[in-house]
Design a protein around this nucleic acid. Sequence first.
DNA 1: TTGTATGCGTTATCAG
DNA 2: CTGATAACGCATACAA
Lengths: 329, 329
Amino acid sequence: MVTIKDVAAEAGVAISTVSKVLNGYEGVSPLTKEKVNSAVTRLGFTPNSVAAALSSKRSKRIALLVKLVVNNASMDEINMRYLFGAISSAMDNRLDAVTVFYETVQDMDEEALTAYLKSQSIEGIIVFGLNREDEVLLRLIDSETFKIVVVGSVITNRSTSSVAIDYAAAQYDVIMRTFENIEGNRILYIAGKDSSYSTALKLEGLRRIEDEMKTKAKVVYGDFSELTARELTFKYAEKSDVIACGSDLMAIGAMRALMELDIFKPVCGFGGIKLMAYAGKQMNTVRQDFEALSREAVKRVRELLGGAEGASYTMEYDLVRVKYRDALI
Amino acid sequence: MVTIKDVAAEAGVAISTVSKVLNGYEGVSPLTKEKVNSAVTRLGFTPNSVAAALSSKRSKRIALLVKLVVNNASMDEINMRYLFGAISSAMDNRLDAVTVFYETVQDMDEEALTAYLKSQSIEGIIVFGLNREDEVLLRLIDSETFKIVVVGSVITNRSTSSVAIDYAAAQYDVIMRTFENIEGNRILYIAGKDSSYSTALKLEGLRRIEDEMKTKAKVVYGDFSELTARELTFKYAEKSDVIACGSDLMAIGAMRALMELDIFKPVCGFGGIKLMAYAGKQMNTVRQDFEALSREAVKRVRELLGGAEGASYTMEYDLVRVKYRDALI
DNA sequence: TTGTATGCGTTATCAG
DNA sequence: CTGATAACGCATACAA
């Protein structure tokens, strides 16, 4: 292995000088800088990040906390996008990202989890899909032990930022869009779970519609499940003009139920996953750029690591109409 | 931060003794072992893996190389399973796993890729979904620079193992099963890609069927694409009694085409993903336990890291019949 | 069985 | 602007 020592010898300078050049510090003459750089390429030197981490006491290591959520294909798609965005962004930012599944740490208490993360030299965490039931994580956030960015929920403190779209506005927009060219004002709203932070925000958007349209929506909870949404649609579809769902997967369930009932009512989802196109009909939804959300999260965790205070960041979304053929590739 | 030094002081022993106890070495009296352990818990000591890696020159770090493959929902499901299996297994084996996407390293040449991996202190790699077109990776394998386990392809050398099911046998089995209670012996076989290592093996299984059934299958390539499989089915379905596909996604495409044509022919897929159940009809497929494959890969890479020679390992598979309702959860 | 001493490759402080 | 040199926390050969 070629080390910084070899580079120093080759360039005819001191080790500390090489280190300075490598890390882009001030106070190195262009000449020596050049000497060092050429030595680096000549020897094919690649810095040892382990030694750097030990010496600087900064690992630049972040954990990406995702939930597997078995039996939910839409989460697979979303998680892969999240991971891809975060990992490639981390690479660009010279951060070291490790993926951690909730499922593998869910049985730990806060102390054990902290110890585990510390033993891994983890300094920052990006949490995807946090909800109210994740008590240990919430306590971890409260403790401010790590720099944390929460994606998809709005929760901040001195060392915690959040990155999300404006759920209330998005929910409002997509339902409004779905009412275009539709008679009536009766809404069946199939919410996700009460434990999801976004659910309350989406309901806020619904409230605004209720106010504007002088109507009272029928709100039921579908647990983010296609099957439950399907059953709820069988039960309540008749008395509604539009069916709005808190997730795309539930929208698929609702759509399928309508097809089986052989009646047509406009349905809208929330998410913007590709999988939705499998439903077989057109429907409106809110498309989020999960990759961009994730990249933003990396950017923000880097800022936190750099000493910044936690803050809340809002990302853009699109309203889209997904068609069947979109899924065929 | 509490270090091994603090533990040594607390326990009243030397640093090296603590290290020995921590790493489970021989030659430590039960008494001192006990003293150390109690000091560890008393101080809440967690070893610093970075320092350990630097000192021992063994990072115990492996890379999980996955392909994002945009626009293919089935790969998302498979990759998430792979990652979950590998990451949780790595945790159990005290290995440090980092996820790397092909897409972020595909523009590197072998030298750059090696440098990148080395700078990350990566010693072993698990490659998911390797194919013939991944020239740089193939050269990396040839170089025997890293301990590598290839999942889903059979390719080995001194420092490379592979973990996969018996594709030929599985393909044979599932097609045979699909012929049960069916008249005729004409097969439309929609293969994946020629560049996929598993494709040749699956075709081997097909050959055996051709021999046994005294028939000659129509073999076409569907590029693992639902749409292409759909079009091929429109084109060739009429002259076949059974449609066998090299992947579940293509089987979905074939099934959809048949539904549109309003004719029934048995279809079989290959993979065993949940998503398949969205097709709307029943079909046979080969179910692989992706998580188990992945855990096995971690086990094997650990052996390689321990000095073992590369070898090929075969995993079990099931034949299953997937129903529509399976997707509704 | 236990302790001492050295080094892993880098960063960072402080003289020069 | 450049160069010694002391950490960083741990593993390990070697001495006791």
